[in-house]
Every structure is written in structure tokens, then in C-alpha cells.
Design a protein around this nucleic acid. Structure first.
Lengths: 323, 323
DNA sequence: GTGAAAGCGCTAACAT
DNA sequence: ATGTTAGCGCTTTCAC
């Protein structure tokens, strides 16, 4: 009958419905944006993957945008995407742009903050228990006998960073002879390198260092390796996020694991729920973290097998073979 | 005059032009897709960043999609995005889906293949000189005295992998007593772990291993560390891509560096040029690679300072302090 | 230079 | 059940 004839026509004319025209009339595009501060931080790709997967199940497309933690970038992306008919936003790195995001979108139901808790609590979020995670980690280091512990913090506009700092301070204050060292830095590898160099040069007697995330810890670890310092014998090191590279024995970094996939999944489900319902009440989900102990704090002191110095040229031949 | 009055109205009414309506009439959306096989491979975020930046300069938005090297995924993403009014595609991981991509898009001018060269040469691409890079790397290992060298290859549908394999074979064939070992695997960390374990268990006398990319090399390096093998004294290791983690002294991996940012930049410029011009001739750009020597092949044999075994629980206290 | 009208491909609300 | 129509917000054309 009619149905089959139409199907046939669809085939022969290679007809594909235009979501554009549909969007023009219906007002919804099934397009979501994921805002991250820096896609080259391995934490975000892991998050992006779970978000993309969950969104795809519901027929939604996800656009990933780098903000570089700059308000102007957030603004640029959101205004453009809004013109493109964006349905909703998952912001994994709110900071100084919080007010800007909310005002550009207008509607609080269309945005979920994840990873970094927002200041405004009339908007939904899915975050980890950063405070608790930092407490656990710090207490662990204290239990291992460390007293002079450094904390390489993140920028003050990032609430996950400030929560972790609070947790650190809290745990340190519970032990009378504990001496905290604290510095505000960025979420970058360079940041970790710079701060640790300074601390070592100042010879301030640190025996353990907590980095605000695994990337920063990577930068710090590079310094330890370059200076031939033993880990954890000379300096113990720990990070945050539980990224894949931290978990690898190559890095072997003790880290406070966030349930990245779970955060991504929940964020999408929550956002879609909000987009679909009339009545809106902001939801605040806080997931527990898990302390994963690895070489960088638990090592038994046996030396690693790889050489310490890098060269970048001038290879010469001759060597023996014995596998 | 009129202009200022209109500007004022724009402000007061918070008017934002709708790209959707514009797209409906003009037929262009300024939306590009970047197809990658797996966003959690650090190579791709680096690429994505440069592409996103260059595209943004021209007012284009980039959507990143994971194909997982599955045709069905590519198909799903492209048909949906085409409905959304996709202008062009940059595919960084063509494989079995090559024909499918070209047929769905119809128009060869709207797609650029990068990273992996396509079979069809009537379509544009920007790729590295994978063959030459592999030759350089292999010759280097040979010059260091290695003769029994393993090559952990990629899937046969990935032309960058097959080109690298050709380069390896070529260089090995130039030395009479060189003994190549070759295996076809995937572009994943697990792949590297699995293959290296097998080779070591088989006790086949390898002194050097080349991995098809840095991720695979990471998996292989984990095995060396877990088994307490010295690098490069027992086994030298090298990868491909020149990702940030390989460059870090933490991994210290000798790698064939691709000029990732340059590839991304060129891909965008080329695509936009093609989208804008009537006459279309496919362009094939091949960029040189650069061999970067690091610990994993150049180490002096001094032991690394970190312990070799990971634990995941049971911390206890007591230790001394001396920074 | 300013204004009016047609139409992009679809959906929703009618009319048959 | 099937057919018709208005209109989403813009661009393009053609008339004033």
C-alpha cells in the first residue's frame, strides 16, 4: 500500500530527513555541548567517551569544546552553539565563567556542571567528594609517617581544587606535628614541574607531595626523575583523578580515583531528564572517591630499571645482545 | 540613523541570529566532523586541539566522533551529522570504512583523510611519511647493534600501520644478519602488553621492540617494568607518534614524531579551500617525521629510582625524613 | 537605499 | 485515513 510506495521512493530518491528543518520548527536539535578546560588532559577524553556513548544511546550528538579556562572562549563557543540550536550543556570545568554560562543559556535546566562544583546551587551538578578524597589521601600519607607534606593546588576559581585543599588542611590539622606546604598553581604538567623544582631548590624538607591532579603529578614526577630522587624513599607523590596513565606501572601514581564513567553517564541522564520535564528542581549528586595506592607512595625502595637521563640525538652503535 | 537603531534593538531584544534558519536556506552550517578511532589515545586530543583552533578561526565548529574502527559507528555518526547539515569531514582514522565514508558523503571535496592514508587517491589527504619514519627508526636500532628486532604492528586496514611495517622490513633487509619479528595487533595499550608478554615467554631473543604507536609502546613498557627488565639494556623500546607522554622522562620513549599540530592545521585549511572552490583536484600532502631519541633506546644503563611492584592496599606507617 | 515576497524542508493543526 | 496549509527565521530577489 502507501507505506511501501513511500519506502520505495525514500530509497530511490536517497531521501534523508533534514534535522535542520526539523530543528527550525521544533526548536530542538539533539545537540549537546561538553565544555572542558583542556582536552589534552587525559581526564577529559575519558569523560568525553562515556558522555558521548550515553548521549548516542538517546540519539544526541556531543560537541566537545576547549575553554582553556578563559571566559571569552566559553562565551564564544556558547553563543555560536546556541545559534546552531544547542539543546544543553555539560560543563566539566566551570570556573570564572560560571555566571557567564548561566546568563548566556538563560535556562538553568539546560546545563549540568560536573567535575567542578558550581557556586550557584540552583543548578544541577554531578561531582566527586573532593573534600573526602583529599582527607583520605592525606591521612594515608600521614599514616605512613609523613609530616612535611606539600600540596600543589589548583586555581582558586576551581571549586574541586579548593575542596581538595580544604580536605588536605583538615587532615593535616588532625596531627599535631604535621607541617603543610601549600601553593596555588594551574592544572597543567608545567605547573607541577615548576612548583616541585622550587620546593626542592628551597630545600624545605618535604617528604611527600600531593598534586591537584594526575597531570600536575606527572610534571612533578619528571622533576624527581631528572634529579635522581627516589620515590617514595626521598619524596612520595600522589595525584587526583585516577587517569589511565597514573594507573600504569610506568607512572605508578597513587591517586584519588574519580568514577569518571559514572560521572559522565549520570550527567547525560540527568541533563536529558531535565530537558524533557516541565518542572525543574536542581539536583546535586556527589559521588564517593576511591584511594588507589601505587608505587609513588607505596614503593618498597627497590630501584627501577630504566636509566635516568634523556638524550635527544647523537646515537652511536655497538652494544651487546642478551635478552 | 537606521544602523544604530537596529543595533539598539539587537541589544534590547537579545537577538541572536539563528544558524539553523540560515543553514536551511544557505545549505551550509559551518560544522565539521573529526572522526577518530579512540579519543582516549592521547594522539587524537592533540590533533583535535589544533584542528579545533584552526577551524574556530574561520568560524567553524568541530564535532569529534569516535568510530572505534567500526564501520557501523562511522555510518551512524555520518548519517546523523549529515542530517544535521555537516559541511565537511576530517577523518583521522580511515580503515574499513573508507568506501562507506565516501559513499555517504557522495562528494570527495568534502572530506580529508589524515594520519592514515586512504586507498582511493581521488580524495585529499595529509599524512606523515610513515615509511620513511619507520626506516629511520629501524636503521637507528640496527646502528646501535640490535639485530633481533620485534615489530608490534597495527591492523592491516590501517595504511599508516602497513606503511610503517614496510619501512621496518625495508631497513631490516638492508642488514644481512638482521632478524625481524612481526605481529599484527591493534592500536591499543593492551595489544602491546599482550604481544610483548608472548614474545618474552617464547624467549625468542629480542633485544629491541618497535611498537606501532606510543600507546602500544606503553603497554609493552608495562611488561618490561613488571618483569624487572632493564631498558634498553635488556630490551630497547620505541614507538610512533611523538605524543606528550612518550616525551616525558617518566616514559622516556624513543618515538617517531609526527608534526601533529601541522597536520591538523593543514587539514583544516585544505578542507576549507576545497569547500570554497568549484574546481576540485585531490591533494596529497606528505609531511616528514622526526626521530626523537630517548631513554628507552638511549639509556646509559643506570637504574631508575622508583620501585618496581605496585600494591593496592595495606599501607603502614613508620619512615624517616630526609629530603 | 528601503521594503515586500518567495521559499529552504519540515511539523502541526486543521479540513476533507 | 488522506490532503492542505501556515509558518519556524533566515536569505535572496525583485520592485519601489
Amino acid at each position: 500500500m502507501t507505506r511501501t510506495k513511500v519506502q520505495a521512493a525514500i530509497e530511490t530518491l536517497r531521501y534523508r530527513p533534514s534535522s535542520i528543518a526539523r530543528a527550525l520548527v521544533s526548536g530542538e536539535t539533539r545537540l549537546l555541548a561538553l565544555l572542558v578546560s583542556d582536552i589534552t588532559n587525559p581526564f577529559y577524553p575519558q569523560l568525553a567517551k562515556s558522555i558521548e556513548q550515553e548521549a548516542a544511546k538517546a540519539g544526541y550528538t556531543v560537541v566537545i569544546c576547549n575553554t582553556g579556562d578563559r571566559i571569552a572562549e566559553t562565551q564564544r563557543h556558547l553563543t555560536r552553539l546556541l545559534g546552531q540550536g544547542l539543546d544543553g550543556v555539560i560543563h566539566a570545568a566551570v570556573g570564572r565563567d560560571e555566571a557567564c554560562v548561566l546568563s548566556i543559556l538563560g535556562d538553568h535546566r539546560r546545563v549540568i556542571f560536573i567535575n567542578r562544583p558550581p557556586v550557584d546551587d540552583s543548578v544541577s551538578c554531578v561531582v566527586s567528594d573532593n573534600f573526602g578524597g583529599a582527607v583520605d589521601l592525606t591521612r594515608h600519607l600521614l599514616s605512613r609517617g609523613h609530616r612535611r607534606i606539600g600540596f600543589i593546588g589548583g586555581p582558586s576559581f576551581a571549586r574541586n581544587a579548593t575542596d581538595r585543599l580544604r580536605g588536605f588542611k583538615q587532615a593535616m590539622s588532625e596531627v599535631t606535628d604535621a607541617v603543610p606546604f601549600m601553593v596555588t598553581a594551574e592544572f597543567s604538567k608545567n605547573s607541577g614541574t615548576r612548583v616541585l623544582k622550587k620546593w626542592l631548590d628551597d630545600d624545605c624538607g618535604l617528604t611527600a607531595v600531593i598534586a591537584i591532579n594526575d597531570q600536575v603529578a606527572l610534571g612533578a614526577m619528571e622533576v624527581l626523575i631528572r634529579r635522581n630522587l627516589r620515590m617514595p624513599a626521598d619524596v612520595a607523590l600522589a595525584g587526583f583523578d585516577g587517569t589511565a596513565i597514573a594507573a600504569s606501572p610506568v607512572m605508578g601514581l597513587t591517586s584519588v580515583d574519580q568514577h569518571i564513567d559514572e560521572i559522565g553517564r549520570r550527567a547525560v541522564l540527568l541533563l536529558l531528564k531535565q530537558l524533557g520535564s516541565e518542572r525543574f528542581v536542581a539536583t546535586r549528586q556527589v559521588l564517593p572517591t576511591k584511594l588507589l595506592l601505587r608505587h609513588s607512595t607505596e614503593g618498597d625502595g627497590r630501584p627501577r630499571t630504566r636509566p635516568a637521563r634523556a638524550k635527544t640525538g647523537g646515537a652511536r652503535a655497538t652494544r651487546d645482545v642478551e635478552p
